[in-house]
């Protein structure tokens, strides 16, 4: 079942005399429970597309639906409410509030939504435990490693059980090992916690975790690639053995 879909989504920067198209006429459907990776060279419009999906950026033309709601029809307050209840965001630069503890950072969307503080903090603890940071709830962002910070950000995205989690280069600022941890966590969010995830990355190894990869070039989708489990693990094993034995 589709959860997000776009219709002729277009974003043009610059003025009328010198339009710079970032996203052109994109029709995309994200299925519920899907792990979708958006790839493309820099300047291909992949981040812009993601922002428009999450209501962070307004399309120049075209529409984005989250289930039955058309985002551009919403006013700023309604869109803000949507962002704190229906979307979860994970960004490249973690974007945690430096003066808040991990727990409070995670609780922020709930608190902004008016959840009583005690309950919000309790839920934040649960979310932090899910990303393996149960023992770091009272730490400030500066006291956490990059990977840990990103997991806090992930917990913040998870805490509201949003309809869609949108992640923009979540591993872009991490070393390989931390990057792997974070992507594993994202994969678990889809597999175990039944989240829908849209991720922008330029890292093939991160994209390989996804169920589906779309490629953007010059603001257009040039390939839509569903990765099927072919169940040929044995074949890979054999190939790898050959690799070793060659």
């Amino acid at each position: 079942m589709s959860i997000v879909h776009t219709e002729s989504l277009t974003k043009v920067y610059g003025d009328v005399s010198q339009p710079i198209p970032a996203v052109r006429d994109v029709n995309l459907t994200v299925e519920e429970g899907e792990f979708l990776a958006i790839m493309g060279p820099s300047g291909s419009g992949k981040s812009t597309l993601l922002y428009m999906l999450g209501g962070l950026d307004k399309p120049t033309s075209g529409k984005v639906w989250l289930r039955d709601s058309e985002l551009s029809a919403l006013n700023d307050d309604a869109l803000s409410r949507m962002r704190r209840t229906e979307f979860g965001f994970v960004f490249q630069f973690f974007n945690l509030i430096p003066v808040l503890t991990a727990q409070e950072n995670v609780a922020i969307p709930l608190i902004l939504d008016g959840v009583p503080r005690a309950r919000a903090l309790k839920q934040a603890d649960d979310a932090l435990a899910r990303v393996g940071l149960a023992d770091r709830t009272m730490h400030r962002p500066t006291e956490l490693s990059g990977g840990q910070q990103q997991r806090v950000a992930l917990a913040r995205a998870l805490v509201t059980t949003p309809a869609v989690i949108l992640a923009d280069e979540p591993t872009g600022n991490l070393d390989s090992r931390s990057s792997d941890d974070v992507v594993q966590m994202l994969r678990r969010a889809v597999d175990e916690w039944k989240q829908t995830l849209v991720l922008v990355t330029h890292d093939s190894r991160v994209a390989a975790f996804a169920d589906r990869i779309i490629f953007l070039k010059d603001g257009k989708i040039v390939d839509d690639n569903r990765l099927k489990g072919r169940g040929n693990a044995d074949q890979i094993r054999e190939q790898l053995s050959k690799m070793v034995l060659s």
Binding site: S204, R205, A207, A208, F209, A210, I213, F215, V222, D223, N225, L227, K228, G229, R230, N232, A233, I236
Partner: peptide, 18 residues
Amino acid sequence: LITQRRELFQQLHEVTEL
């Protein structure tokens, strides 16, 4: 290129899964 990339991603996906 696209065809080859699909295959490589498929393989990468599977190796990642393993």
